[in-house]
């Protein structure tokens, strides 16, 4: 299996985000997390609910099994049975995320999307992040604008930032002060490289190598979920 690509490792790592999720709405943003959620549904988490990104819940065969327009998504957010995987223009060591603006919010040097649903997601239910290009510009000491709430600002009973999956590693916040640590580095990536590409010090005790996709998973990714290899566009080989 020496031909397994980095993108395929990332898809499997995203699938693992949903382990134990059961009948929960998976809301993956971006290609690799979407492939990961579908992969989880077809393997370990058949109970997962998947939306088409518009208004329907779909089975793996793309049959409509439910209606979920935006207003009902907000109901699910508040209800809490949801695990979102958002993108991030910036993420900091406590898991604060920024998709709003770079620079001063009053007059940004670069306006981005806006807060979108990040404040509501992070205060209500499990949230993970996907970073396709792990670099010091994305993994920053402190984000410019807090859209998604991190552990140093967490309030309320439901805050739960789970993991950050990048093109280099899987990271979480299972440290005494809830700062980010390396869970696993992807095959071919050293802990040093992950640290060099991160602006803040990363805890790295007991780092493992990110698992390879199984034969069954590779077959699903290559023949069923992404037969045209669009995943290589998001994470180059």
């Amino acid at each position: 299996m020496s031909d397994i690509t980095r993108a395929e490792v990332c898809v499997a790592a995203c699938a693992d985000l949903f382990l134990g999720a059961g009948e929960t709405l998976a809301s993956p943003m971006g290609l690799i997390p979407s492939l990961g959620a579908k992969l989880a549904r077809l393997t370990t988490e058949p109970g997962l609910l998947l939306s088409d990104g518009e208004a329907f819940l779909l089975t793996p065969e793309s049959a409509v099994e439910g209606w979920l327009p935006y207003r009902k998504v907000f109901d699910v957010v508040a209800h809490g049975r949801r695990h979102v995987v958002m993108g991030a223009n910036q993420v900091d060591r406590f898991g604060n995320q920024n998709i709003s603006a770079i620079g001063d919010h009053a007059r940004p040097t670069r306006q981005l999307l806006g807060f979108r649903g990040a404040p509501g997601n992070t205060i209500n239910h499990r949230t993970s992040y996907w970073v396709p290009r792990h670099s010091p510009r994305v993994l920053v000491e402190a984000v410019d604008v807090v859209s998604g709430v991190g552990y140093d600002r967490a309030v309320g009973p439901f805050h739960d930032v789970h993991r950050v999956v990048t093109n280099l590693a899987v990271l979480d916040f299972a440290t005494p002060d809830r700062s980010m640590r390396i869970v696993s580095a992807h095959p071919g990536v050293s802990v040093d490289e992950v640290r060099r590409q991160t602006s803040f010090p990363l805890a790295a005790d007991g780092v493992t190598e990110t698992r390879l996709p199984t034969g069954e998973e590779l077959d699903l990714i290559r023949t069923r979920l992404d037969p045209h290899g669009t995943r290589d566009g998001e994470v180059p080989r």
Partner: peptide, 13 residues
């Protein structure tokens, strides 16, 4: 009342 916004910079700005 709503939870969304707590802890984030929505309230800061």
């Amino acid at each position: 009342p709503i939870r969304a916004g707590l802890g984030s910079d929505v309230l800061t700005y």
